[in-house]
Amino acid sequence: MIDCMFRRHGADGEDEVFESTDGTRSNWDPEIQHGSPPLALLTRAIENLAAGSGLRIARLTLDILGPIPVATVRVRARVERPGSRISLMSAEMLTDRPDGSQRSVARVTAWLLAPSDTADAATDRYPPLVEGDPAAVAHAWEGAPGYLEAVSWRRQATPEDAAVAGSGGSAAVAGSGGSAAVVWLSPLVPLVDSEPTTPLQLLAMVVDSANGIGAALDPQQFVFMNTDTVVHLHRLPTGQDFALRARGSIGPDGIGVTTAEIFDRRGFIGTCAQTLLVQRRE
């Protein structure tokens, strides 16, 4: 039974040590981690480092530096560019090689800015999304163990679904039609053991799923894994339910991009983008 994504195993010098659970396993390969759990754990490290600074995270960039094993990982965070109004912080995830040395597998950098009162000038690009009944098929990885068991995934029906159903076909499972796909997601377990998980960490636990939500290709025929996830937030998230409205674009040379708008129950909060390596399955 999956009860959290990571278990804390104390500290080793400047590093926090965690054991990765089955809840981190990727739908592409169960031996490696889905991108969202590492993004969330490194976001946690940056939030802890920034505590008391008076700054808030406005942008998160996850770079996946290699396969992230479902194993013991180390996390360390540091200030790259100090400042009272603008600061750059980073967090790194490392794993052990067979020879005992360490390799860096993921890095998150974050711009933190000083808040001020702009309530009278606030604007939202899009109206709030209201969750409807979920579509019959949540995604194209039905039955995949691991991360997808630890997240509630409610895909919203699209006009393409209705058209396909009317023709007697199977419901669409991704954003490969004319409309962007919308999925509401909620983590079902804490990020670390039973400790409280902040709203920003909860969002990070699901936002890397934009690639799967906006899939423009059939995952039975293609692999399209993202190398990064970049999140811009004009407002901090609230609650634990988030919607991603995502769409993928595939180039002619094996490289793609997924972009998404991010919503919480109150409305639009930001955007994310991902770079994709696209390969045809053998």
Rank of each mutant, 00 (worst) to 15 (best):
E31L: 11
E31R: 13
E31W: 02
I32C: 11
I32L: 13
Q33Y: 05
H34C: 01
S36L: 07
P38M: 09
P38V: 08
L39K: 05
L42T: 03
L42D: 02
L42K: 02
T43E: 10
T43C: 09
R44F: 01
E47P: 01
A50S: 14
A51Q: 14
G52R: 10
G54S: 11
G54M: 09
G54H: 09
R56S: 13
R56H: 15
I57A: 14
I57S: 12
R59I: 03
L60V: 07
L60D: 08
L62C: 03
D63W: 00
D63F: 00
G66D: 07
I68T: 12
V70R: 05
V70M: 05
A71L: 04
T72F: 01
V73R: 02
V73I: 05
R74P: 00
V75Y: 06
V75C: 03
R76A: 11
R78W: 11
R78Y: 03
V79Q: 13
E80M: 14
E80G: 14
R81S: 15
P82S: 07
G83H: 05
G83C: 05
G83F: 06
G83Y: 05
S84Q: 15
S84P: 00
R85T: 13
R85F: 12
R85H: 12
I86L: 15
I86N: 14
I86W: 07
M89A: 14
M89R: 15
S90P: 04
S90T: 09
A91Y: 03
A91H: 02
A91P: 06
E92R: 14
M93I: 00
T95H: 13
D96T: 03
S101Q: 11
S101L: 02
Q102F: 09
A106T: 06
A106Q: 08
A106Y: 06
V108Y: 03
A110E: 08
W111E: 08
W111Q: 12
W111I: 10
L112G: 04
L112A: 12
L113R: 11
A114Y: 00
P115K: 06
D117Y: 09
D120V: 11
D120N: 12
A122E: 15
T123H: 13
T123I: 15
T123E: 15
D124T: 14
R125M: 12
R125V: 10
P128C: 06
V130I: 15
V130G: 12
V130P: 00
E131F: 07
G132T: 10
D133P: 13
P134S: 05
A135V: 07
A135H: 08
A136I: 08
V137E: 14
A138V: 02
A138Q: 12
A138W: 03
